[in-house]
């Protein structure tokens, strides 16, 4: 989508992450759309289509908000523009012992 005015979406005004709708490169500016406003965030990592990045600095232990709701908790400090995924956030729900694969 080279001609789009935006390349990332926010689902709710309270969210602290946005979702990339194109493959975005580290160092580039993400153009984030929410309702009729656009915001620009400089990316720290490559963000692939469908993946999330932080809209502001998030402290370890802070909740990650998407759709205006909690989707988990930060397990490290996360910088604005940083990739937000399984390496730095964790579920609050559905936890027990970790399932290990046979291979």
């Amino acid at each position: 989508m080279p001609n789009s005015k935006y390349n990332a979406l926010i689902m709710h005004l309270n969210d602290n992450v946005a979702t990339a709708v194109d493959d975005l490169a580290a160092g580039a500016d993400a153009k984030v759309k929410i309702e009729n406003k656009n915001q620009t965030i400089e990316l720290i990592n490559d963000i692939r289509f469908g993946h999330k990045f932080a809209l502001s600095d998030i402290n370890k232990g802070e909740e990650i908000k998407k759709y205006g709701e909690s989707i988990g908790v930060a397990i490290t400090d996360i910088k604005q523009g940083e990739h937000v995924h399984v390496h730095n956030i964790d579920s609050i729900r559905g936890k027990g012992a970790v399932t290990k694969n046979e291979f």
Binding site: A97, T99, K100, N101, E102, F103
Partner: peptide, 14 residues
């Protein structure tokens, strides 16, 4: 699938 049930399925297919 989770836990031993997943590994048993994987082991069987393997």
């Amino acid at each position: 699938q989770v836990g031993d049930d997943l590994t048993q399925t994987e082991r069987t297919l393997m």
